[in-house]
Amino acid sequence: MASLPTFVETVRKEFQPSFWWPVQFCVYTTLTSYILSIITGNVSQVDRVWTFLPTIYTAYFALLPFWPKNALLPLFPYTPEETYSEAAQSYSLRALLMLALVVIWMFRLSYNTWRRGLFNLNDEDYRWAILRQRVPPWFFQVVNFTFIAVIQNIILFSLGLPTHIAAFQQPSKLSTSDYILATLALVDLTCEFIADNQQYSFQTYKKTGVLDKNEWPAARIAWTPEDAKRGFVTRGLWAWSRHPNFFCEQTFWAIITLFPLLAPESPNLPAHPLSSPTAIWPLTPALVLCTLFFSSTLFSESISLSKYPEGYSAYQQRVAMFVPFLTPVWGVLLKLQGKQGKVDALLFKHGNDTKALENKKSQ
Rank of each mutant, 00 (worst) to 15 (best):
A2V: 14
S3I: 09
P5T: 06
W20S: 07
L31W: 10
T32G: 13
S33N: 12
S33H: 06
I38M: 08
I38T: 07
Q45F: 05
I56T: 03
T58F: 01
Y60W: 08
F61G: 02
F61D: 00
L63V: 05
P65Q: 05
K69H: 15
K69F: 09
A71K: 13
P77S: 04
P80C: 13
E81A: 15
E86K: 05
E86W: 02
A88L: 10
Q89R: 14
R94H: 06
M98D: 09
M98T: 08
A100R: 01
A100G: 15
V102C: 15
M106G: 00
F107T: 07
R108E: 04
R108Y: 02
S110C: 10
S110P: 04
N112P: 00
R116C: 06
F119R: 05
N120T: 13
N120A: 11
W128E: 14
W128T: 07
R132V: 05
Q133H: 10
Q133V: 09
R134L: 11
P137M: 06
V142T: 14
F145Q: 03
I148M: 11
V150L: 14
N153F: 01
I155T: 14
F157A: 03
L161K: 02
T163W: 00
A167K: 01
F168G: 00
Q170K: 03
Q170P: 00
S175Q: 11
S177F: 04
S177H: 04
D178Q: 13
L181F: 06
L181M: 09
T183L: 13
L184F: 12
L184K: 00
L189C: 00
E192T: 04
Q198E: 15
S201D: 11
S201K: 06
T204E: 09
Y205K: 04
V210N: 09
W216E: 13
W216G: 00
P217M: 12
P217S: 13
E226R: 10
G236F: 10
L237R: 02
W238K: 05
H243G: 03
H243F: 06
P244F: 05
P244V: 01
P244N: 10
N245A: 07
F247P: 00
T251D: 01
F252W: 08
F252M: 03
I255K: 00
L258G: 02
L261D: 05
L261S: 06
A263K: 01
A263Q: 09
P267Y: 05
N268E: 12
H272W: 15
L274Y: 15
T278R: 07
I280Q: 06
P282Q: 05
P282G: 04
P282N: 06
L287Q: 07
L289C: 04
S295T: 07
S296R: 02
F299D: 09
F299C: 05
S300L: 11
S304V: 03
E310S: 15
Y312G: 10
Q316M: 15
Q316F: 03
Q317D: 14
M321L: 15
M321V: 12
F322W: 07
F325C: 14
F325R: 15
T327V: 03
K335L: 14
D344Y: 07
L346F: 08
E358Y: 07
K361D: 09
S362T: 12
